[in-house]
């Protein structure tokens, strides 16, 4: 029993490292014009989605928290808050979708919803941080961007799913 918990923890740690690596890679991208600074494709959502599904919401939220801690260390407090708001919202959405709409959406649909929630969370955080509602001006642009990146991450998730499953099985023994 204890052994299983240890395995789960080890899997979580690996997923967390992978999420961090992906978000670090994303950070190397230049800012995208017409989008608010900080808007990213959200590749690490792939990992968070997988974690929410295989390890449950608490573990997924832990990864989100660690990820925003990483953002705090590398990019400062406001980036951390935006990352946290986006991550929490998208992890929650993921969990709700898994519980109540298991058969309704495919991987693309789920990841689009997660991307939209992620972007919306970031936007809300930015609105709170700057104290202006003006940043909500970006909302429609971000929604288009989120829909596009959601489709992309959904397809990537499908492609790397076998590898992720294999990795999980390795820790399930």
């Amino acid at each position: 029993m204890d052994k299983k918990r240890t395995y789960r923890l080890a899997l979580a740690a690996i997923l967390c490292a992978q999420a961090l690596a992906l978000s670090f890679l994303e950070g190397l991208l230049p800012p995208i014009p017409w989008l608010p600074p900080g808007a990213k494709p959200g590749l690490s959502n792939i990992i968070i989605m997988f974690a929410a599904d295989s390890l449950g919401l608490p573990m997924a939220l832990t990864i989100v928290l660690i990820k925003s801690g990483f953002a705090f260390l590398t990019r400062g407090a406001s980036a951390a808050l935006m990352s946290l708001a986006g991550g929490v919202l998208s992890a929650l959405a993921m969990r709700l979708l898994l519980r109540y709409a298991r058969q309704t959406f495919g991987l693309v649909g789920v990841s689009v919803i997660c991307a939209l929630c992620h972007n919306f969370g970031q936007l809300l955080a930015a609105a709170v941080l700057t104290g202006t509602r003006q940043v909500l001006y970006y909302a429609p642009m971000l929604a288009l961007f989120g829909a596009a990146t959601g489709v992309a991450t959904g397809m990537i998730l499908r492609a790397v799913l076998p590898a992720l499953e294999k990795q999980k099985r390795f820790f399930d023994r």
């Binding site: 959406f105 495919g106 693309v108 649909g109 689009v112 429609p140 929604a143 499953e165």
Partner: peptide, 29 residues
């Protein structure tokens, strides 16, 4: 994690999101 890549609802969802966003942009313009 077994899921199909794409369901019909996904398409509806995407379409709704894109239409809504474009609608807002168009209205704004």
């Amino acid at each position: 994690m077994e899921r199909k890549l794409l369901e019909k609802t996904d398409l509806a969802l995407l379409l709704a999101a894109v239409l809504l966003a474009c609608g807002v942009l168009l209205w704004r313009a």
